[in-house]
Write a protein that binds this DNA or RNA. Structure first.
Lengths: 190, 190
DNA sequence: TCTTTGAGTCAACACTTGTACACTAATATG
DNA sequence: CATATTAGTGTACAAGTGTTGACTCAAAGA
């Protein structure tokens, strides 16, 4: 799995990586691949699971630090961008497969997002700002926030190394977008 | 190009489609491919150009019908979803390549988005609702709206055929998200 | 201690892939 | 009419692909 992620991080597309490449990158003979996975797709699904664990860990940490309570303010965006930088390969993989993977892979990732969004929804449910919002609309809002962040991740990955202050610009833009959504949420009447 | 798009629409990932497959699907011998493109990437870039033309056409139509003036209300979302349904292959391609293409392909698509968003920005600039918003923030808002719509396109493509009322549910959700953003925009003070 | 099992090796297969070269036929252009 | 150009054809090759089957060997469990 690390070998596959390495290739993805190196610029290859997961869907066009061959079993043999993975094996070679893992320092192992091609036939050994079958000892671990039947398929490249199965390998991909396992990576999605790992990614899910990673994201849950991130979420736990954010909750502890209290940043999460205000759900996606500046500091939580900073945490996120750092996290992405530390796990570039995983996020390249995720960005690629969310739209370009097998149908099974796509829906596996979709599910991770749903989980993430629903966790966010329960966390912000209690906020007094949102007491005019019903449960369905709350889900919609959480979904929009999560999507907004994830959607921009590929841009961050692509450009993070281009200029030293891109990270700050990116964070500023992200914060604005989320503030805009929060502003709308405050006015929302279900 | 149609042959390539056909393969994409059939579930294959553009980045793993071979030159030979395209040739076969076009009813032509592999070596003939080189008469038109040097590369699969070059073919891809040409498809992006075509897609750009398509999107501009869509935008023109929406403007004429007046729906666009209110920028992404229900009827313009309906127009968009119909448009996507009519050009599924193009949109599968776009969704795939925005995150999974070559770097050149990715940034070509990014540019189309930028163009689209900036057009939207100039269209909504005059709205009295937004007279407290400066130019930079307006761009950010237009960008968020465009992203929000495009980001969900893959979900629409994947699930449009699953249930007969998915289209309506999708439109409802989309309208809500955009309404949320508009609500925020109305409160925004740059 | 014997035996099962997990993870690796090697050789081989039929097939696909990108690309090169030499050739043909229709269609524009001078 | 002659000539260039454009889009197609067939053959060929070296490299890469997924998958098979039979083998080794260290570690874990009985």
């Amino acid at each position: 799995m690390d070998a596959a992620l390495g290739l993805v991080g190196g610029g290859e597309n997961f869907s066009s990586i061959s079993l043999r490449e993975v094996a070679k990158n893992a320092g192992v003979v091609p036939t050994s691949f079958y000892r671990h996975f039947t398929d490249m797709e199965e390998l991909g699904l396992n990576v999605v699971d790992d990614l899910g664990l990673l994201l849950r860990k991130l979420m736990r940490n954010s909750r502890q630090s209290g940043a999460y309570a205000e759900a996606l303010n500046r500091s939580s965006i900073e945490v996120y961008t750092d996290f992405v930088s530390e796990h570039k390969n995983y996020f390249y993989f995720m960005c690629q497969c969310r739209t370009g993977g097998t149908l099974a892979l796509r829906s596996a990732i979709r599910n991770e997002f749903k989980y993430f969004a629903s966790e966010l929804a329960t966390d912000i449910r209690a906020l007094p700002l949102l007491n005019q919002v019903n449960s369905l609309d709350l889900d919609m809002m959480a979904q929009l926030m999560v999507e907004t962040v994830f959607e921009s991740t590929i841009d961050f990955l692509d450009q993070a190394d281009t200029s030293p202050n891109f990270r700050q610009e990116f964070i500023n833009l992200m914060v604005k977008k989320l503030r805009l959504i929060w502003l709308g949420a405050g006015e929302w009447r279900s």
